[in-house]
Each structure stands twice: as C-alpha cells, then as structure tokens.
Design a protein around this nucleic acid. Structure first.
Lengths: 358, 358
DNA sequence: CCTCGGTCTGGAAACGTTTCCAGATTTCCG
DNA sequence: CGGAAATCTGGAAACGTTTCCAGACCGAGG
C-alpha cells in the first residue's frame, strides 16, 4: 500500500538534479545520456510512476473517452463498446461508460457535464435527437461523435447505418426465394428504429419492383420475444389459407424469434411454410434453432469507425463534421434457407459465458 | 466550443471576491448568503462548471472506478458491469472499463498501472490468479476488489460464488426428477471454471447420497455451442440403449445448447429422453427452445456486491479483507421440465437489440 | 583570444481547485 | 460599553506535472 507513491520531486531529489531535468530525462527529450541514466536509476529505486492527474492538469488531456448509451447491457451497444475499446486502447485512451437516460433532456444534460473536462471526447449513441440536444452537442467543450443519424450538416462527426435499406435487403432476399405474401413485424412506431424500419419496409414494398402479392405490417408492443410471439399469434389467428403470409420480416432478432415460435405453434414449418428474417445479427439469433437470417447493421464497424473519428479529432488535426455510413449486410441462415449454415460450425470467438475462462 | 471554459478564478474576478470565498460559496460551506448569491450569479453568468482534473488533483480523488476483465463482450461480465455501474453512478463514480489480457502476468501489469492514480479503486475479475498477482494486488496503491475466489486470508476484498455447489444443485434436481444416468459435459479442465465445476460434479456424484446408476464426464474442446455439439455427438455415438444418459449436466449454457442439438439430431426428445441443464442463466438460454434449466451464478448480485465493497472502501472507513459469497440458484425451465415456463412470458427488461430504442 | 552557436541544466510559472491560517468584522453577553 | 466569541473574508500554499526562459558550459571557428 505504501509503494509507488513517489513523486517526481522525490525522484529529482534522489537523483540530485532539478525537477525540470528529471521530467526531461524520463520523457526522453533533450537530456544528456548521463542525466537519463541517473534519473532512471533514481526512478526505479523509488518505484516511481507518474501521476495521471498531475499530468492531465498540465497537459489538459485526460486520455479518456466516454461512451454513452441508454442501456449498456444491450448486446448491440456491447458490441460497439468492445470495438471502441479495441481501437482506443492501443492509442493510450481509456474508455468510460456512461448512461444517457431515456430522454433527450437527460442526454443533453450528460453532454453538458462534459464541460467539467473528465474526458477528451465522447462517443454518443442517443435514443433520439432533437434540436436542443444537437445544439448542446455543438456547444460541447470536447468533441462528440454521434452514432445514429448523420449530423454532418450541423458540423458534428457522426456514424450511421441504413436500417431502412437493410429491411429492403431482407425483402429482396425473400422475394428472390419466391415468397409473395410478406408481413412486416415491427416494434413501436414512436421509436427511432421502429420509424426507420417501417419506412424501409414501405419503400421496398410500394415500389414498382415489388413482385409480391401483398405486404402488410403489424406492430408488436415492444422489441421483445414475448411481444413478437403475441403479435404473430394474433396475425395468424386473423388470417389463414392464402391470406397467411409466407414470409415475416421482423424488425429485430428477438421479434423474429417470437415469430418463429408462433408459427411453429400452429404446426407450420420455418422456413418451408413461413420464412422469417431478423435484424441486428445477434449471437442469440445465430445460436437459435433455426438459426436466424438477419440483417447485420455492423455494430462493430460503427463502433470502430466512431473510435477512429475520435482518434483523428483528438490526436490529429481533423475538422469535425465528417460522416461515415456503414452499409447493412444480410446474413442468410436457416430461417429462410434450410441449406444455409446453422452458425454453429463457424467459430464464435465469444463463448458467451464466464465458463470460458482459460 | 467556447462555452464553459470559465475557471474559478474568473468567477472570483467577476464577482469581485477572493478565490477562497468563491470556492466556499459554490461548495456551500461557511459563506454568507450575500456572498453565495453574488458568486452564484457570476458563475451562471459565465457558465462556469468546475474542472474535474483540478478538483481531483487537490482532493486526491478521481471519482472513477475501474472494472477489469479479460473479455468485456462476455455476457456474464456485461451483467456485472451493468450492476456495478448502477451501484456506483448514484455515488458519483464513473466506471472505466479495462481488459486484463489472458495471462496473470498481463493482469498483474494492469494492477501495477493503478499506481498512476487514474482511479480510486478497481474491481477485478481475473481469469486465474497466482501468487505474483495476489502480491501485486496487495501492493496496489488503491483498493482492489476481486470477483472470483476468496482472498480474505490475504487481506483483499473479494466476492465469490460456488459454481461447484451449483453443479451439485443441478445434479440433485435431475435425481429428483428420477434421472439415473448422468453425464457431465464440461469445458477444458485447465480452466478455473472447468476445474471447479468438475470438482462439483464429482462431489455430487461420488457421495453416499447419490441415488443414480452412473455418472460419467466428457470434456468438450471449448465452452461453445459447437464444442458441445461435437462432444455430445461422440458421446451418443459411443453409447446407446441403457448406456445412454438420461440427463446431461452442462458446464455452461452454450455447451447445453450444443447438447440439446445433438440429442435432437438422434431423434431423441429433450427433456423426455434426455434432460439437459446449463449454467450461467444467460439470456440466450432463456430464449432458446426448449428454454434451458440453468444454474444462475448471480453475476448481477456479484457485481453489485463488489461495487458496494468499493463504495465502503473508498467513501467509508471499511477495512479490506472482507468476503462475500453469492449462492448459486437453480432456475428450472423446459429443458428439464416440460411444464416449466418458457421464459418468454416473464418480462425480460432487456430487449437485446438496438431496436429497442424508445 | 574572442565570439558565436549549440547543448544542457535549473528556476519558476502554469494548469484549476480546495483549505489552512490569520485577520477583519460583526454579534452577543456580561 | 468592553471584551470575548462567533462569523466571515482574503492571502497563500498545496496537489504533481510539463515547459518556457535564461543562464552556464563547452567546443569550434575566425
């Protein structure tokens, strides 16, 4: 407990040289070899390690970056966080996790708290944005990179994906498989993803290129398995025979799992009778039986890109206002194509459990 | 970008009073109402917000706590992190995520880095521990709370669970259901959990109270679905008829899922022909069909407990060396009991996707 | 031999905050 | 009304680091 509380001053005294020289010697710039040797010796003797706070105060740099989301347990955000950490750690930056709360107000408050200067930058993935929040971000005393919609026009660095386009990809995939009666299983429409994905489905099915017979949409109470199950049950109750969909496009993997369950309850087969697609490409969808065809929104890529923007902004001399888009990517598995891999043979690096300790 | 860069000195000048009085007025101690009013006004006028670094330097307190594990994407650790964050945030502490690397050496190195004083404490869940690491933790300049095995005898705060006992609970549960031929599906034995869980299985089956006919163990290559699938296939290939197990105790949920798949491949039913239990009680096991009976090791509780220990240690005046044990808890679901809930009706607060945005 | 340039060193300031200490002013009570 | 006590204020130091600045020293070239 007593070790390593040595300060630079003590090292200087021990080495019998000035504070300035000591700093230079350890920092490796403009000191004679003899001096370096001498100071190094004193430093190791005392078990010296530089104080991060003193250093930060002088340098006006904390070597910390905040990552703020509403729910840090959400697998999508966990993926982002992991990617962010992987990019930032080699650059010497620590990652501080924070929560935004549910509202734009609480998010704006969090952004305002940046003015106390405990981080060099923030990566923010807000649930939704409004003008007040955007303005707060612009006024922030440290760079903020937003994962969500593009804010390039407001001079804010941002990374986005195209979930609407992703739904379109799922629709095209199903049409390509010969499916003709599509139902979109969405979550609440008053959410940002719910709204965007609905837009994507409408765009894909109300175009001239739409070769199907029908395209309906139902809304589940929430983005959960239970809600997906209930909504799909109702859907199947209401329609049978030719009215029954032969494909369900779900707005995320959990809804898709609920849909699969409901379909099977009716004695129907997935994908033979009803094909199902999900979105987010989560571990849970990969492991499920049948493994889920899902639209990956590239959470890892988005996290990585955001972190890279931060590095440029903080280390280098980049100007804010850049925007990066990560394209959606359809991953075909059993829930639409029985012949597709089941995701098990492919090595899943994460074993999903504390039991994975080596 | 120009806002909130005001310093306390500027506030003092603006208010026309001394620096000392300004600090007191804002901090609310020993200042006259008039002074408080005056300083407050100046502060809001300038949009002042106190600098965290200057504050930390003076107070010798960072208001940050590190959480370090090998793999921050691992759901078990994510659960811990979430719980830790929930406990610490209300106390005004930020959470810094760090990775230990795979070896005890790299972990010890991380602990040593604490001497630069960027956090007030660390919560560490090491893959494994050795004497050098324990010694490093003892020497650390800030309190370290270990999640893993008890280190009370070394004067280090720790939180542990009893995975061995948890396996015992699974065994008892299966015996209670009338199962007689048990097979333990473990991961690599040279891992800490692998070793402990094997010990638990042996203890539960080699005792006088063991009412079964046989108890075997197989070892999968890894704690993954694929490894569980392969190992269980081999197991079923080798034995049939009466030799076939009527219950499989898996060392974690992913292995259990692999086992379920292999059993079904053979045209056997879960749980009727073969009952399966997992461990860790992950979301993935709850959602899987059949939903998995699993032994929860209370990751949330352990995280919460560790965070509470940190708060006591840093805020209060507790002495290190305490130890808390979180008991394992068996959650019965469909993979052993067809009548058990499938985990879907029970509200899962986390929707597992970015699509859950409100 | 003088001067110039380069290399190296030490003093001191600065980053922004909190708090000790002493002095000044007010309040209270005898 | 005098003195003690209580209340309030300002100066200054301290936390630990980096870096500007000036000065010292040395060697080389004129």
């Amino acid at each position: 407990m007593t070790s390593s509380r040595a300060t630079l001053i003590q090292v200087a005294q021990r080495a019998g040289v000035s504070l300035a020289s000591t700093s230079r010697a350890l920092h490796g710039t403009g000191a004679s070899p003899a001096m370096v040797e001498r100071v190094r010796a004193a430093a190791t003797e005392l078990g010296y390690s530089p104080d991060a706070i003193g250093r930060s105060l002088r340098l006006k740099k904390t070597f910390q970056v905040a990552f703020a989301v509403a729910d840090i347990g959400n697998p999508v955000y966990v993926e982002m966080m992991t990617a962010i950490h992987e990019v930032l750690a080699p650059h010497g930056y620590r990652v501080v996790v924070m929560t935004t709360g549910d509202t734009t107000t609480s998010t704006a408050e969090l952004v305002r708290s940046l003015s106390s200067g405990f981080v060099d930058a923030m990566i923010l993935s807000p649930l939704r944005t409004d003008d007040a929040l955007v303005e707060e971000i612009r006024q922030a005393t440290v760079p903020v990179v937003v994962i969500g919609r593009s804010l390039a026009d407001r001079g804010i660095d941002s990374v986005s994906t195209d979930s609407a386009g992703g739904i379109g990809e799922a629709v095209q995939h199903l049409l390509g498989l010969g499916r003709r009666r599509l139902t979109f299983l969405n979550g609440p429409l008053d959410t940002t993803p719910g709204e965007a994905r609905q837009r994507g489905f409408d765009a894909a099915t109300r175009t001239k290129g739409f070769t199907g017979e029908r395209a309906d949409a139902v809304v589940a109470a929430d983005f959960t398995v239970a809600a997906g199950l209930a909504a799909t049950r109702a859907l199947l109750d209401a329609a049978d025979g030719d009215a029954r969909p032969d494909a369900i496009v779900a707005a995320n993997d959990l809804l898709a799992i609920g849909a699969v369950r409901a379909v099977r309850e009716r004695g129907l087969a997935v994908p033979q009778d009803v094909a199902v697609t999900g979105m987010d490409d989560t571990e849970i969808g990969r492991v499920f039986q049948p493994s889920l065809t899902s639209v990956s929104l590239g959470s890892t890529e988005r996290g990585r890109a955001a972190a890279q923007l931060v590095v440029d902004l903080v280390d280098g001399d980049a100007q804010p206002g850049r925007h990066l888009a990560v394209g959606p990517r359809l991953v075909v598995r059993e829930s639409t194509d029985p012949a597709a891999g089941d995701g098990v043979s492919a090595g899943t690096p994460d074993d999903g459990t504390g039991g994975g300790h080596r």
